[in-house]
Nucleic acid binder design. Structure first.
Length: 213
DNA sequence: CAGCGGATATTCT
DNA sequence: GAATATCCGCTGA
């Protein structure tokens, strides 16, 4: 049996590093989400890095707007964005203030509060599907834009915080380039996941959407 | 599991 | 109008 995960909160210095350093270091960590109905905990299994203003795939590439302001703030805070008119996604802001880099939490395993997550994820057909995908993860944890800007280092009463957990050894993780991004940026491994973990969604090549009108 | 279309907000053109 | 860091329900294997 494995040892119990370390429940020590991670300090702000954990986030205040280059995003490509923080992203793989998040795998196996424990995200705590405290709701009025009770706590949920998530073991992070898949993430993707976004390098701020220099990254064509990032929301920050076109500069600061009302919606992405949190990305330009201090590290250790949440950036929650609304996508495709229906879904939310949860990012953790990294690097120095103004760098506008962050890590998207793409998938994880719900280890505490699976009953609460199941109520919100009615269509999930198995526990491993509760947080298999960025928008599913946000839905399972009851994350919406009211949590945008939340400080994960604000102490045990914060609605979001990050515990040490069980960091994943380098030989147990995989990485790969993002799809849909050309140029020099495509050469970097932006996506990281725990190898063979059943909560990681299968790789899907990006395909342009057909027009609907 | 793979492939498809539909639903919708935000931003740039 | 077009693109996008998506998911769901359906079909078929």
């Amino acid at each position: 049996m494995s040892a119990r995960p370390d429940r020590t909160p991670l300090p702000r210095s954990f986030f205040d590093r280059p995003v490509l350093t923080v992203a793989p270091d998040l795998l196996g960590r424990t995200l705590v989400r405290r709701t009025t109905d009770g706590p949920l905990e998530l073991r992070i299994t898949e993430v993707e890095a976004y390098e701020g203003e220099t990254d064509p795939g990032s929301h920050a590439y076109r500069g600061r707007t009302a919606c992405n302001a949190s990305m330009f703030g201090p590290p250790g805070h949440a950036y929650v964005y609304f996508i495709y008119g229906m879904w939310f996604s949860l990012n953790l802001v990294c690097g120095p203030p103004g760098r506008a880099s962050g890590v998207l939490l793409r998938a994880g395993e719900v280890t505490v509060g699976a009953d609460l997550a199941t109520k919100r994820r009615v269509s999930a057909r198995s526990p491993r599907e509760l947080a298999k995908g960025p928008a599913r993860l946000a839905t399972a944890l009851d994350v919406d834009r009211s949590l945008d800007g939340t400080d994960l280092c604000a102490g045990p009463d914060s609605p979001l915080s990050l515990l040490t957990g069980t960091p994943t050894a380098a030989d147990l993780m995989s990485s790969g380039p993002r799809t849909g991004v050309g140029g020099a940026g495509a050469a970097h491994p932006y996506r990281f996941w725990i190898t063979n973990d059943p909560t990681v969604s299968p790789y899907r090549a990006h395909a342009p959407r057909r027009r609907s009108t």
